[in-house]
Computed example of a mutant assay.
Amino acid sequence: MHATEAPIRATATDVATAAPAGSDPRLVALLERSGAEVLVSADPGTVKLLTGHHGDVETGPSPFLHPPVVVATATDAPLLICAEDEREWAPHVRHLPPAAGVELDPVGRHELAVVAALAELRVLGRRTIVDHVALDTALQHRLERVVPAVGLGALRAVKTPAEQAGVAAAVRLADAGQHAARQASWDGHDELDVWIAARTAIEREAGGRVPLLADVLSGRRTETVSGAPRARRLSDPDPVLVDLAPRLHGFWADSCATWAVGEPTDALRDAHAVCEEALHAALEATRAGALAGDVDAAARAAAARHGAEYAHHTGHGVGFAYHEEPRLVPGATRVLEAGMVVAIEPGCYRRGVGARLEVVAVVGEDGAEVLSGHELALDDPPRSGA
């Protein structure tokens, strides 16, 4: 994006509905639970769910484009309000065209433009759920009769078959990245080499740039649980822990695996075995009707049989965000439902090494369907640089 591009104007044209006519039943249920008539959100995941639109999220807020906003009711098709520059991805929206030569003011001009659109749509004054995390504070103050949301997190928890397919496509990117990371993990390379190999494989699989979150750790750094890659050289018998979360067409995936440069140490074999058993126990407990906390408890009990524990969650929902409902944490009372998509990732961090294994699975009536296909074994065939 070039600095010559200008911000949005305070007026808007091109009124049109986005997405198919009618409202998503998940939205209708949320509005009914909350006693509300309207949902206004700028959360990228909620915008994707209700409109199909997905903008760039990797570079942070743009000084040239305001964040897309979705306005949704129980009776009408959702309306997407976004900059005209995003027309390629959202052909049926209310566009806010850029204004050449206007002083850059992404907050103030965004507020004026969106409020003008909401007023024309007669949304102001109706009982409204506001996504306080993602929506500009200045814009929130313009809305009247704001009511608290009851179960906003549940809106995106259960995925349709088409949405599950979108997550599965993102999972295939994670699989490609995990394979490439293993192949690049040899004596003399460093963590950045592993990261570059993973990212390159993911974007070749995707056919272009995609947002990507990653932990790449080696040696004693694996015991710190998470962290960005550094110029730390790999050497035999270092453990390597790689956690990759790519986003494709607005859907996130997640993955993690742990392996060794050369022959694994006894400490790493022990930690990896704990993760395998805990992951298996969690997957066995994952089914419709189970409590999220019970899945967490199953994994922790398996780890505890080996005298191990881990400080982070056992898992989380994934899809419209890289972390969303349901949360697989101690004591969680959310009931798992068929169609939820979860990432399960128990770990073991002790004796100077850390290990974690993570797969994505769809919750079913009779159990979990694992979408991930990356290698989880500690030992694997020789790598290209070995």
Rank of each mutant, 00 (worst) to 15 (best):
H54L: 03
S255R: 02
T51F: 12
H272Y: 10
D24M: 01
V123N: 01
T224R: 00
D131R: 10
A198E: 07
P237F: 03
P161Y: 10
E88K: 03
A154L: 03
E86W: 03
E276L: 01
A21T: 10
H54N: 12
T200L: 08
R230L: 10
H2S: 03
S23V: 10
V362N: 00
R350V: 11
R327Q: 15
Q140N: 09
L79C: 08
E88H: 06
A303C: 07
V40Q: 11
A343C: 15
P25N: 02
P61Q: 02
V225N: 05
G60L: 09
L371R: 09
A377D: 11
I81H: 08
A285T: 02
P61G: 13
G55I: 03
V133F: 12
L241M: 07
A181K: 10
A138R: 13
V360A: 00
A343K: 06
E32T: 15
V362S: 00
V93Y: 14
V353S: 12
V362Y: 00
R9Q: 10
G319Y: 12
A201H: 05
Q164P: 03
V114D: 12
S218A: 06
E205W: 04
A285N: 02
T333L: 08
A181W: 05
A100E: 14
R233L: 10
A355I: 00
T224W: 04
G166H: 01
E345T: 06
T333G: 02
V329T: 15
R142D: 03
S255E: 01
A297Q: 13
T59E: 13
D296K: 01
E263W: 04
A29V: 08
E58L: 13
H66R: 11
L336K: 09
T200F: 06
R9H: 09
E284L: 15
I202H: 07
D187S: 11
T314D: 01
L336F: 11
H313G: 09
L378V: 00
D366Q: 10
T137I: 12
D193C: 05
V216T: 05
L31V: 09
H141T: 14
A231W: 04
R383E: 11
A302G: 02
V329G: 02
A157F: 07
A3L: 07
E277T: 06
